[in-house]
Simulated scan of single mutants.
Amino acid sequence: MVDDPADYSWSSYQSNGLGKRVKLLTPHPQYLKLGKTDEERQSCYRELFRYQVEGKLLDDIRKAANKGLVLGSKRFVEEVEALTGKRLREGKRGRRVGWRKERDLV
């Protein structure tokens, strides 16, 4: 898309990260918690975009987002599944091995 988040015209980065006043933008409560002053908040916000996500991590994030899965450690995924009552990790695709034998027994 762009090399610098400030170059993307539809992003709130110019306001949140650089302090540009935008009449249409209302600061989000989470943004306001980044610091006590405008300068602190802008500095913390810029730090969020300091590094690019690439390679396998980017692929894993896309896969989880596209499939509605949880991304994290095994323990974290299990805890989220327990809280939601839903399976949120990828399962094996296709039918179970031996499903035809089970069908023939009925």
Rank of each mutant, 00 (worst) to 15 (best):
M1L: 11
M1P: 03
V2R: 04
D3K: 05
D4R: 08
P5C: 09
A6M: 05
W10K: 14
S12W: 02
S12Y: 01
Y13P: 00
Y13N: 01
Q14S: 09
Q14D: 05
S15Q: 05
N16C: 06
G17F: 00
L18E: 11
K20R: 13
V22K: 09
V22Y: 07
K23P: 01
K23D: 13
L24Q: 10
L24M: 06
T26S: 10
T26E: 12
P29A: 04
P29Y: 05
Q30N: 13
K33P: 00
L34R: 03
G35V: 02
K36E: 08
K36I: 02
T37I: 05
D38N: 15
D38S: 11
E40D: 15
E40V: 07
R41F: 04
Q42A: 07
Q42E: 10
Q42C: 06
R46G: 01
R46Y: 05
F49D: 00
F49N: 00
F49P: 00
F49V: 05
F49E: 00
R50P: 01
Y51R: 12
Q52A: 14
V53W: 02
V53N: 08
G55V: 03
G55W: 02
G55I: 02
G55F: 02
G55D: 12
K56P: 01
K56R: 14
L57Q: 07
D59R: 09
D60Q: 10
D60N: 07
I61V: 12
I61E: 01
A64E: 02
A64N: 03
A65M: 07
K67W: 04
K67S: 05
G68E: 08
G68V: 10
G68R: 09
V70I: 15
V70Q: 01
L71T: 03
G72W: 00
S73Q: 06
K74V: 15
F76K: 15
V77G: 02
E78M: 09
E79Y: 00
E79T: 10
E79C: 11
E79G: 06
E81C: 15
E81W: 05
A82H: 04
L83R: 14
K86E: 15
R87K: 15
R87A: 08
R93F: 07
R93P: 00
G94S: 08
G94H: 05
R95Q: 08
R95T: 03
V97F: 09
V97I: 14
V97L: 10
G98W: 03
W99M: 09
R100G: 01
R100S: 14
K101E: 14
K101T: 08
E102H: 10
E102P: 01
E102D: 14
R103E: 15
R103K: 11
D104Y: 09
D104M: 14
L105K: 11
L105Y: 06
L105D: 11
V106L: 14
V106Q: 10
